[in-house]
Simulated assay, not measured.
Amino acid sequence: MLKKPQFICSLSLLTLLLSVSPVRSQGVEPTLTDYNYNQDFISIPIEVQPPENKPSTTNACSPFVAPAMEAIIKRYGGGWGILVQKLSDGETIYNYNADRGFIPASNMKILTTAAALQRLSPSTTISANKSLQEWVAVTNLRSDNYYADTLLKRIGGGAVAKQILAQLGINPQGFHFADGSGLSRRNLATPRVLVDTLRVMYSNPQREIFFASLPTAGISGTLRNRMKQTPVQGLVHAKTGTLTGVRALSGYLDHSQYGTLVFSIIANHPNQSGTALVRAIDEMVITLNTTANCQY
C-alpha cells in the first residue's frame, strides 16, 4: 500500500495569501515601441489578477498534490494558473485557474512553433538558409524573440495561426496573439490551451522536431541552469517564459509512476522578484515529481 509522501504530511500552517492589485482578464494595453529581440525580458509594469479561489479538480491524486502546490502558491502570492495532466489518458493531476487567461510571456512560442510546424514543411527555408526545423530549434531552445516573430509573420500572422491551432482542436477562445514571441503584454493564454497544444504536438507528425526544440532542465537552452542536481534534472522538457512580473514554464515531465505529465505553470505577480517566482515554479515541478501514486 502506497503512503502519502511525508513532505505533504508535515506541511505547516500557511501564511495568508499576499494581496495584489486586480487585473483585467483582457485589455492589458502597454505600449511596446522598441525591444531587444535577443532578450526574453522587458521592463514594463504589469497589473496582476489575483487567483480565483477555485478548488482543485477532484481525483485520486488531489489529496496528495493540492496541499503541496497550494502551499507554494500561498507562500509566494500573486496570480497563478496551473494545469497538470497525464499524457496517457488526460487525467487531471492538478488544476488551479487553468481556464483563466494570463500573460504567458515566451510560452507564446509554444503556440507559434506548433502552428508553423503544422503549416510548413520542416525543410522550408525561413531565412539565412535556415530550415524551419532549425528555426524552431532556435526559437524555443534559446527563446529567440526575433525568430518567433519572424515565424508568425511567415505563416500569415496571428489570425492564421489561430485558425491552424483551432484545426488541431485547440480552443481559439483560450488565447490571443499580439506577437509571436510573447513580448507583448497583450498576449493572453490559458494553461489549458498550452497543455492542449503540448498534448497535440506530442502525437503530431512533427513531434520529434518540436520536442527536441524544448530546453531540458539542468542541461540545455534556457533551462540549463535550472533544477540542476535535483531529481528532475534531465526529466523536464519545457519552454520558459520571462517578463517583469511574469514567469512561466510549460512542457513535459517524465514521472516514474505516472509516465509523462504535461503541465503549464504561469505566474503573474508584479510585486515579487523574478528569482522568487522561478524558485516557486521549480519547487512545484519537483513536488510533482516526488508525489507518489495515489492509489491505495
Rank of each mutant, 00 (worst) to 15 (best):
Q173T: 11
S184F: 00
P191F: 07
F210I: 09
T197Q: 09
F210T: 07
F175I: 10
Q167A: 15
N204T: 13
F177W: 08
A212L: 12
R192T: 15
Q173L: 14
L194K: 04
A189R: 02
F177T: 13
S203F: 14
Q173W: 07
L194P: 04
I170G: 00
I209Y: 04
D196H: 14
Q173A: 13
R192V: 10
I209K: 08
Q206Y: 10
T197R: 11
P205S: 11
S203R: 14
F175G: 06
R207Y: 13
H176P: 01
P172I: 06
D179M: 11
G174F: 12
N204Q: 15
H176R: 13
G169E: 01
T197I: 10
Q167C: 09
V193D: 01
L188Y: 12
D196G: 09
R199Y: 03
S181Y: 05
M201R: 11
L188Q: 10
E208F: 08
P205F: 03
L198T: 09
L194I: 06
G182M: 04
I209R: 07
R199D: 03
Y202G: 00
S181G: 13
T190G: 00
L188S: 08
Y202R: 11
F175E: 04
A189W: 00
A178W: 10
Q173E: 14
L168H: 08
G182V: 07
L198R: 05
G174W: 12
L194C: 03
D179Q: 09
V193Q: 03
Y202C: 00
V200G: 01
T190R: 04
V193M: 01
P172L: 05
V193N: 01
N171A: 08
Y202Q: 04
A178L: 07
G174A: 14
H176L: 13
S203M: 10
V195Q: 05
N171S: 09
M201G: 03
P191V: 09
S184T: 04
A189M: 02
G182N: 05
R199L: 03
A189K: 02
H176D: 10
A212I: 13
R199I: 07
F175Y: 15
V200R: 13
V193W: 05
L183V: 15
F210W: 04
R199T: 13
G169C: 04
A189V: 08
T197W: 01
R207Q: 14
D196C: 10
Q206V: 15
S184Y: 01
R185A: 05
V200E: 04
P191E: 06
N187P: 01
F177Y: 15
F211W: 14
A212V: 13
V193A: 06
S181W: 05
N187E: 11
N187Y: 12
T190L: 01
F210D: 00
S181V: 10
V195N: 04
E208D: 15
P205V: 13
F177M: 12
N204F: 15
N171V: 07
T197E: 03
D196S: 14
G169P: 03
V193P: 00
L168I: 09
L168E: 12
L198F: 09
G180I: 11
G182Q: 05
R192W: 08
M201L: 10
F211V: 13
D196E: 13
V200D: 00
